[in-house]
């Protein structure tokens, strides 16, 4: 990738790529802070949305201690068990809505063809779209976890720090999934239901709010086939000392292999679909 700077000189490909990523990041940051109400609600809504779930939990486990959870996985501390899944759930939702949905948003505001005509690789643009949302997600998750801690009594086990490295393969898997998903938006156009349903299903089937052990057999088989389930299970078993779903070394191998496979597959799928869209000339069609 080469581009021409303000003085008419060619910039190196790496500099041009980082310039494009920076430009997309700044564009999204400016869009976000331009609507102060959205900014306020992005912090308030996760706290409000969680209230019904919180009341349901305390109706079963008044002090956060669940005999039922203990019978499933060997720990009764639901207030420690849940936050790990919540963080993973947030990342899943963010990637689907911001990486997958980014192209739909551009379609809606009539900018997709303009952006597509820019001398920037589409993949760089797609990744750039996710950078600001990831930065935003990190800040939001930290704030929301602090609020959950002091308002609801949820705590993350201290041992989570030693296991944060698991978020590296997890993010790679999610990026692969999100990039592949963005191509579906080019194919199917009406992405709202698609994003909503997929994000909900992935969050649900990976057990972000419950132990996967509660699933009926056929759902458990699907759940075990999704690498994100193993990321959550590894985080839970390594931080809370609970019984893992399958052998942890096998889970590590699944997560590592998926972290390599998913991004490559996502990029290949996206490029193939994008080429097809350009050939058919249907980028502008809603």
């Amino acid at each position: 990738m080469r581009s021409i700077d303000d003085d008419g000189r060619y910039r190196s490909s790496a500099a041009a790529m980082f310039g494009a990523l920076r430009a997309v990041f700044v564009k999204n940051a400016l869009e976000f802070i331009r609507y102060p109400v959205n900014l306020a609600f992005s912090l308030v809504l996760p706290v409000i949305w969680f209230l019904p779930i919180y009341f349901l939990i305390v109706s079963f486990a008044p002090a956060g201690q669940s005999i039922g959870l203990d019978a499933w996985v060997g720990t009764s501390s639901f207030f420690e068990y849940l936050p790990i899944g919540l963080i993973v759930g947030y990342v899943i939702m963010t990637v689907f809505w911001n990486l997958g949905f980014a192209l739909k948003r551009l379609m809606d505001i009539g900018m997709l063809e303009t952006i597509w005509a820019c001398p920037v690789p589409r993949m760089v643009y797609i990744i750039g779209e996710s950078l600001f949302s990831m930065a935003r997600l990190t800040v939001e998750v930290v704030i929301v976890l602090l609020v959950y801690r002091y308002l609801y009594g949820f705590t993350l086990p201290a041992t989570i720090v030693a296991n944060l490295f698991l978020f590296v393969p997890f993010l790679l898997i999610m990026y692969g999934l999100g990039i592949g998903f963005a191509s579906l938006v080019l194919l199917l156009k009406d992405a709202n239901t698609l994003v909503d349903t997929s994000s909900f299903l992935v969050s649900g089937l990976t057990g972000t709010q419950n132990p996967p052990q509660v699933f009926p057999r056929f759902l458990l088989a699907i759940s075990v086939g999704i690498p994100i389930t193993h990321v959550i299970d590894l985080l839970r078993s390594r931080t809370l000392g609970i019984e893992p779903l399958i052998d942890p070394s096998m889970q590590m191998a699944i997560v590592a292999a998926s972290a390599l496979l998913f991004p490559v597959a996502g990029v290949i799928i996206f490029m193939a679909v994008e080429r097809r869209s350009r050939r058919l000339g249907n980028l502008h069609v809603h």
């Binding site: 779930i53 349901l56 939990i57 079963f60 486990a61 669940s66 005999i67 039922g68 959870l69 203990d70 019978a71 499933w72 639901f78 909900f200 969050s203 649900g204 057990g207 709010q209 419950n210 132990p211 509660v214 699933f215």
Partner: peptide, 18 residues
Amino acid sequence: FSLIFLGQGLAGPDGEGV
């Protein structure tokens, strides 16, 4: 589904926590 499975997780396999 999500609420049912959350409920099942809290209730336990044999309704211990209900």
